[in-house]
Design a protein around this nucleic acid. Structure first.
Lengths: 235, 235
DNA sequence: CGGCATATTGATTGTTGTCAAAGATGGTGG
DNA sequence: CCACCATCTTTGACAACAATCAATATGCCG
């Protein structure tokens, strides 16, 4: 696993060299998944968990009638289904939003870690707790923010998380190549409305979004519109 | 701690007698909190986590303008802030919806457990992962279900969870004494609309809700309306 | 130059929020 | 036991927001 990914994990807690070596060995096998492909099928009972080494992925939950809700967006360095280690079958699918590189970590190895490496175990546990805190922030957006505020919040969150893995340029621009339908599924709105939300953010001079890259033009106003507080990200 | 609470935890995984004794000792000190009181203040850095022995509690997140979103409703036997063990300060508050009895477990003891009891550690970790799965189910409701479907889903979920701790009568009735304002804060709607949603569910003969107790009159139609699948609860 | 996916626009409908008022309920002290 | 009060529930009218439908435009790729 590239060193910068370990650095991301290390932000969640101190790591000894021994523990770093364990993580490196755990993540040496990398697989590629094409855009729009399932990284994990909903309801799967997988034998290993996955760490996203490159690209964008999303957790998805479907309703019978075909409506879909994204419950998380994952960036480089995130675990995609560490929860699947202790929760099977998984209650959601994981979709590749772009072409992704994914490291696979056998559950057998995670069991060993929980038996012998309490500090590393707490670190992994903590990473799932930060996932849960992020979900709570999304719940507030879904329930209580306007669509525009919700979208602003998502962009602020992504910017901070991508910055932590060195994916944001000095002008606060970053790649984020998703369709407006997928954005709508993340925000819990229709794709048509997602389009209008983007136009409002663009029209107010808060962001520029085209060709799959976003640039935040006015961070302060965007964060105020979203009432964004990054504390929950644990960075 | 009363034995039935251990039984609830044991549903999440097998427990040896030794592990049961550890949990019993951990939860012998019980505190009472009055209705509407803060069990945990938002942003607190607590030295212990809490297990709900009696009553109803909710995780709350506030926006600056006073709007509020409940991100979880807790029933007897649930951990209220086990996430606070590895996540501080906490990103949410915990509110007593009714008078509550709460057991307090020092973080020091949790650290010992993670050092010496891998099986128990995985059980506790798993319980936070089921919390997270429940949050994902709520996100789908918030984003993609109608208000009526969302409310139906919440009632189905509560019924199943309360049944697991023996709090549901044979006629599918259970105590759930919360105000319509609090219900609205859970569903992400106004209290006025919460009232109309309840009237619709009552008018269709799906539930009876008065005097703080709910009775589900037609489980099949309620579950269908909610497209409810209890798998995520891990019970 | 098509052909396909995605983005954009306008018109209309349906859902939900807000405001304001009236009714019901439960608890308290006289 | 009753009167009073605070809190909660219910109702109606209206405004704001977002979904849906249908059409058009744009961009990308072979």
């Amino acid at each position: 696993m590239p060193t910068h990914l370990i650095r991301k994990l290390a932000r969640y807690g101190p790591l000894s060299d021994h523990e770093r070596r364990i993580l490196q060995r755990a993540t040496d096998r990398i697989r590629t998944v094409e855009a729009d492909g399932d990284i994990v099928a909903d309801g799967e009972t997988p034998g290993h968990c996955r760490l996203l080494a490159e690209g964008f992925a999303a957790r998805t939950k479907m309703l019978q009638d075909g409506r879909r809700q994204l419950t998380a967006i994952h960036v480089k360095g995130d675990f995609l289904d560490l929860n699947g280690f202790l929760l099977s079958p998984l209650d959601h699918g994981v979709l590749a939003l772009t072409r992704c590189a994914v490291a696979e970590i056998p559950h057998r190895l995670l069991t060993e870690i929980t038996e012998e490496e309490p500090n590393l175990t707490r670190l992994l546990w903590r990473s799932t707790l930060i996932d849960a805190a992020t979900q709570r922030a999304w719940m507030v957006s879904l329930g209580r923010r306007s669509s525009v505020g919700h979208c602003a919040h998502l962009l602020c969150e992504l910017c901070v998380r991508l910055e932590a893995v060195g994916e944001v340029s000095p002008d606060r621009s970053f790649r984020f190549p998703i369709t407006q339908t997928e954005l709508g599924d993340a925000l819990g709105i229709s794709s048509v409305h997602a389009n209008r939300v983007l136009q409002e953010l663009r029209g107010d001079g808060l962001i520029v979004w085209s060709g799959g890259t976003v640039r935040i033009e006015d961070w302060d106003r965007l964060a105020a519109l979203a009432s964004f507080d990054p504390a929950y990200l644990g960075l």
